[in-house]
């Protein structure tokens, strides 16, 4: 059984709650980071010259398509990642245990 899940169940009630709050905060942080990197990516790929003050129609359309496509992509990778993440988790734990043993 997953030793970390066990660890979580062993936490006292208020610690469990604190952890749940920390997880929620990380989810918000994660989505703000994705939002930030999404603007960066679409700006980088769609906007190149700065002679006029506003985005032209082509650039606007490009930014819009870029954002929509990335969101679809992200949803798909999320599903695939759910299938892979228990594996990623166990490998990460191997790394952490190895590191702690090396101290």
């Amino acid at each position: 059984m997953d030793p970390n899940l066990a660890a979580m169940q062993n936490l006292p009630g208020d610690q469990q709650q604190q952890l749940m709050q920390a997880i929620e905060q990380m989810q918000v942080r994660d989505s703000l980071r994705m939002y930030n990197s999404l603007v960066e990516r679409c700006f980088r790929d769609c906007v190149s010259e700065f002679r006029s003050k506003d985005l032209n129609a082509g650039e606007e359309k490009c930014v819009q398509s870029c954002a929509t496509k990335f969101m679809k992509h992200s949803a798909r990778v999320g599903i695939r990642f759910g299938e892979l993440s228990s594996e990623a988790e166990s490998q990460m734990q191997a790394m952490m245990q190895q590191q702690q043993a090396g101290k």
């Binding site: 939002y35 999404l38 603007v39 679409c42 700006f43 769609c46 906007v47 700065f50 006029s52 003050k53 506003d54 985005l55 606007e60 930014v63 819009q64 954002a67 929509t68 969101m71 679809k72």
Partner: peptide, 25 residues
């Protein structure tokens, strides 16, 4: 300097479009 000012404005514009696209999705 002119390029920088425009770049900031356009970045703000791009941000609006992305926000709208994300909320729509």
């Amino acid at each position: 300097q002119q390029c920088l000012a425009r770049c900031c404005d356009r970045y703000a514009e791009a941000t609006q479009i992305v926000t709208k696209a994300v909320l729509d999705m």
